[in-house]
Design a protein around this nucleic acid. Structure first.
Lengths: 305, 305
DNA sequence: ATTATCTATCGAAAAATTAGATGTAGAAGG
DNA sequence: CCTTCTACATCTAATTTTTCGATAGATAAT
């Protein structure tokens, strides 16, 4: 029982004529005969009585009419549904590093939620490897990495920007104000760094390794807010993206160290899988993030090495 | 959007795999790919995300699932409906001559209704010509004629029997008890007959015409119950089927006249159109009538000339 | 009597569906 | 790291289905 036949059947029943239905539907009359016969054969019962070239619905036919209408109504309802603008509703799974997660949630989430109250978002944190895996398994809709600038034909970079990073210390640090520091000057200081999994930590380690250097931090922790407040109150040194340290830099509790020989490129990238179905809400979310989360581009570039 | 594709879609979604769905449905895997693609093209949206050879329903897909289930449920419900025995319900239009109508209604209708309370019957009266026209236009489901024995390849005679008929007069009539009367003996008596349209009246007239005779009845009326009661109380003569006169014959108010040279064949026939769709209720009704309405065959034949 | 109308049916043509083979890429297992 | 397995996409060709056009049969209308 195919919908095509049901539509024909409904029209025949309403017009009371095979010929008229054929004209209306753009079929030849024989096609309508065939389609009705096909239905009758499949259902094993007569749908129309043909007596002297006039057709009358049988009881079965009457019953089918009602079902056919319901079925076609459902089909149309669905298609209408598709057309509708779907005023942004749905679920989005975003995965980001810990630091970004915190920043996005505090800085933008409430605004986004106010604008699009029907989009529900799940935030999860993970390191770059995990995040990419999640993209590959369609477990994340979109991720944001802080890592080396990655490129892969399977992923679409919705937006990216290089992240300025600095060694930071407390304002009272002995390095404060010193110009032209080398990495070697500070390599033996006590460091607090993010965990190894985090992209920019890995890039940092690799960069040190190139110079046959190594840091054994006294503390490793994912939460950058904790790192910054610890650094501000101690002689610890850290290496962090500016967006993490900005508040304490501004309030004068932290200071950048002027280390010249350590130019690390860390990129912030908003990424989704190339086969990802762009629902309206996902599109909206990504556009929002591109606009808001990357809006401080100019400001960052000012600090950028 | 055809049901075939929806069924495939549902299976793919449930099994989470094109291949498994293909196996289950007996399609090749490429066919399933094609069918899903077909749906997606028609709807203009992706139904599954394909990321690394695993498929996940998109939002649209999720929505379609619900509609598809409803649609398939309706289809199945209808087919179930067909299978069911449809415990006799429906409408039947029966057309009979006036006399038969009255007899059937008084003698059998209540019993039939008690047995099959969900079958609703419409009784209409008409003469033979009208009744056959109604069959031809599918306005009557089944008719009963009292006429010459008719045969036509377009009609199915569900049952037929020859109807014994007699000239009748009041018991006090001057003809009562006289043996071996000729039609000529009574031709000039005052007659009361049914209307011309009625089949057996026409047969009667034709039969007279053969003998170059003619009757101008003093009264013509369709209602045989009125005819019989009039005859019983007057010197009128009539010519009627026995089933009409039987009650008053039994009670001794009427008597048969022994007219020997007027042998008219009148048949009672239960007829429907050969293209008529036999609903269960119609079948039931016809069977009932065959059984009950023709059950007095033996008795009638006793009186038969 | 003639014409018009309506459905059934048949054969041929067109279109759609389907299968099978092949390709690609990730997953699993050694 | 390599092989094997699995899964989906795609292409072509075969098959099936659908459709049309023509014709027939029969009734209705004029």
């Amino acid at each position: 029982m195919e919908l095509r036949n049901l539509v024909t059947f409904i029209n025949v029943a309403e017009l009371g004529s095979f010929t008229k239905a054929a004209d209306l539907l753009g079929y030849s009359q024989s096609t309508v005969s065939f389609q009705i016969k096909q239905l009758e054969d499949e259902l094993g019962c007569l749908l129309f009585e043909r007596i002297n070239h006039t057709i009358t619905l049988t009881e079965r036919g009457h019953e089918l009419i009602s079902y056919a209408h319901q079925i076609c109504a459902l089909e149309e309802e669905f298609k209408e549904n598709l057309k509708e603008d779907k005023t942004y509703s749905g679920h989005i799974h975003v995965v980001t590093p810990d630091s970004v997660c915190e920043e996005m949630l505090t800085a933008h989430y409430l605004d986004f939620h106010r604008k699009y109250p029907d989009i529900s978002i799940r935030f999860t944190t993970g390191d770059s490897g995990v995040m990419l895996d999640m993209l590959d398994h369609n477990e994340a809709d979109v991720i944001m990495t802080l890592d080396h600038r990655l490129y892969n034909k399977d992923y679409i970079i919705a937006k990216e920007q290089q992240l300025p990073m600095h060694f930071v210390a407390a304002s009272e640090s002995k390095f404060e104000g010193l110009k032209g520091l080398s990495i070697k000057d500070i390599i033996n200081e006590p460091f607090v760094l993010t965990e190894c999994g985090q992209g920019y930590r890995r890039v940092f380690d690799r960069e040190l390794a190139k110079r046959s250097l190594e840091i054994t931090p006294v503390l490793e922790i994912g939460r950058t807010d904790i790192i910054t407040s610890l650094v501000a109150e101690s002689n610890l040194i850290s290496y962090l993206p500016d967006f993490v340290t900005k508040p304490l830099i501004k309030s004068g509790k932290l200071c950048y160290l002027d280390v010249c020989d350590m130019n690390i490129e860390i990129w912030k990238q908003l990424i989704y899988h190339k086969n990802k179905w762009m629902s309206k809400s996902l599109r909206t979310f990504i556009d929002y993030v591109k606009r808001e989360e990357f809006s401080n581009q100019a400001e960052n570039e000012r600090f950028s090495t």
